[in-house]
Design a protein around this nucleic acid. Structure first.
Lengths: 189, 189
DNA sequence: CCTACCGATCGGTAGG
DNA sequence: CCTACCGATCGGTAGG
């Protein structure tokens, strides 16, 4: 029953934003989640919007780190794509709240930070496009592949994961990775 | 400058719910959109939640009608899948507000109607699974295809459309259909 | 982290 | 569809 830290507040905010959305979460809801009053949160953070920005940026950083690691993997475009896919899955399933908030609540980020969020998303997409284009060059993918459209299809499948995947279900995390990788490889080859 | 009808109210609600989310839209916002006061809306509808339920159910009905039509198409599983894909695209692009509200705001539907919404989504997914299973039977798809997972992948790509597709861009609607159909066919075959 | 608030806004109603 | 409200809740602050 010790005091909450700022970190506790940010994590609880991520949980509620992911679950009910930014506008569906009040500071009093968040306080209740931590066993304190809404007004007490202001000794940890400047405001509600600051919490959203922090959670969203954490999500963005996790995804980008995963993409950077995939691009740095030695091997063909196909090998890098496998790393990208499994990395993305690990981010979504290992940091569900940050991932969902980044993917679904970015529109509630106010103007000042909106650009940064959009830039982060663009950068992540561009990383995948670069990967796909390199893979066209090394023969991993079909020569007429449009990296932009291909990247969108891959990300569409990956970004929908949080909506249906049940970690306690039949399909394990590594099998999931193989299934998605196999499926998109067919479409890219 | 004539009076607004109930239909105007429902459509404007769909617009705002799709754009800002249910909890991000106030009745006063909605009134402003129509040139009247928030309180005046109550002569057209019983409440805010009623508007959400109506828009969500319209979205559900549009998707289901499209799926039913695809299943009724004569031909192989592949032919039906093409109809399913193009039908889904037409619903998303032709009824963007209802589609987005159905896809993204269902969680804000309160308990009484939540089951109906989830049932509608399940039914739509089941339609696609049935289609895929039939296609396995007639040799359209690979014999070891898991219709459940395959359906999820197809819907993941289709449901992400509203997040990126720009009707005024380079890729036309029919080309989009061919691109998506071609991509998923590779993965299913 | 609580007490005790603040002004603003929320969904909604009564009566015309 | 407006006027004139209602109680509840919102994000947030001052002071301890």
């Amino acid at each position: 029953m010790s005091r909450n830290t700022r970190e506790d507040v940010v994590q609880a905010a991520g949980r509620l934003f992911a679950e009910r959305g930014y506008h569906g979460t009040s500071m009093r809801d968040l306080g209740r989640e931590l066993g304190l009053l809404g007004s007490s949160l202001y000794s940890h953070v400047a405001g509600k919007q600051e919490l959203l920005v922090e959670v969203v940026e954490r999500g963005a950083a996790l995804f980008q780190a995963s993409a950077d690691a995939a691009l740095a993997v030695e091997g063909s475009g196909a090998v890098k794509l496998r790393a990208f896919v499994t990395g993305h899955i690990d981010v979504v399933l290992g940091h569900l709240d940050e991932a969902r908030t980044f993917l679904n609540e970015a529109r509630s980020v106010e103007a000042d930070y909106r650009r940064r969020v959009l830039a982060a998303r663009d950068r992540y997409e561009t990383s995948l496009r670069t990967l796909l284009a390199a893979g066209v060059g090394d023969g991993s993918f079909r020569p007429d592949l449009d990296p932009k459209l291909g990247g969108i299809f891959v990300l569409s499948i990956l970004n929908a994961l949080d909506r249906w995947y049940d970690e306690s279900g039949e399909v394990g995390r590594s099998q999931l990775g193989e299934e998605i990788f196999g499926f998109v490889m067919q479409g890219l080859t």
